[in-house]
Nucleic acid binder design. Structure first.
Lengths: 160, 160
DNA sequence: AGGAGAATCACCCGTTCGGGTGACGCGGAG
DNA sequence: CTCCGCGTCACCCGAACGGGTGATTCTCCT
């Protein structure tokens, strides 16, 4: 968590520095006040939105369920691997199983074959946290091993 | 809630203070412009954060939109999950990877989420044997973990 | 104001895995 | 006949995993 704060602080500093630089150039070039203000406003607006989003990690966006429409597959193409539509998460199952957004992330990383440590690095949390999430996922899926969890999740249509 | 307000207030104060400090360096230039920029920056920063928070606060808004999608035939397809066409093993890949029949069995059991012990019981061999086979599979697939092996095998079209 | 849920992190303990090495028997190719 | 690939098994060791418990912080809901 301290890492996060540090990162944001640093980023903010860089942003302000950049702002100052831009400001100086515009001053020298005697551009219009409005333009300067606009740039500053836009820049900080974007930064603010980004910051707000990051700080309040809100998952759970709008879900677009894509209903696959079968298209006949040419025989010769069918040989290598059967075609399948884009993966559609079974939101029903997810809700049934009470899986939280974070747990879903863990589950996906799990299916990708990552170790706890790799997940921790990737998701920017400690390994202990990953283990906790993973344990909950196992409990909710009724799995004893990660491979089993992946298998069960796939069967339930929770992951691709 | 008090904390939040306090935090924002503090943050704004710090921001303004920092801006003011930097401002002194450009004393020779227009003061009003500096102040203007700082105020705008702080204002939009706060507004951005607030906006970001409000906009991304779509927790319960889970809008499920159903969209008909035409399923094209991918040239190089990922392994499907929901019940689709019958799985066709990519024998080509199997031969490339020099996987023996026994190793394939192990790989399948692996993907089914079985532990080494369970595989041993099921295949009627000792756990050590399973481990040996598994180790060879890992080596041939270039995997370090069983979950990774499963993932790689699926991508290669070796298993369903 | 208080409680529930989510996410974060820590520590312990026992089990499982993965990697390395060595060994043995069998069957087919040379 | 001999070599080699395959399948079988064993042992060791360090790393990773799974299970349990407890704690803190923050947000949301009531």
């Amino acid at each position: 968590m301290k890492k996060t704060i540090l990162l944001y602080g640093l980023l903010g500093g860089v942003l302000i520095a950049a702002l100052k630089m831009v400001e100086y150039r515009y001053l020298v070039l005697e551009h219009s006040l409005e333009m300067y203000g606009g740039i500053v406003a836009a820049l900080f607006s974007v930064m603010g939105i980004w910051l707000g989003r990051k700080l309040t990690r809100t998952r759970e966006k709008l879900v677009v369920r894509e209903v696959a429409v079968r298209v006949e597959v040419p025989v010769e193409v069918r040989v290598p691997v059967p075609a399948s539509g884009p993966f559609v998460r079974n939101e029903e199952r997810v809700r049934e199983l009470l899986l939280t957004p974070r747990e879903l992330e863990i589950l996906e990383a799990l299916a990708a074959g990552l170790s706890n440590k790799e997940m921790a690095d990737q998701l920017f949390v400690s390994e202990n946290t990953v283990k906790t999430h993973a344990a909950r996922v196992f409990a909710k899926l009724g799995a004893r091993r990660r491979t089993q969890a992946v298998q069960l999740a796939k069967e339930a249509g929770i992951i691709a």
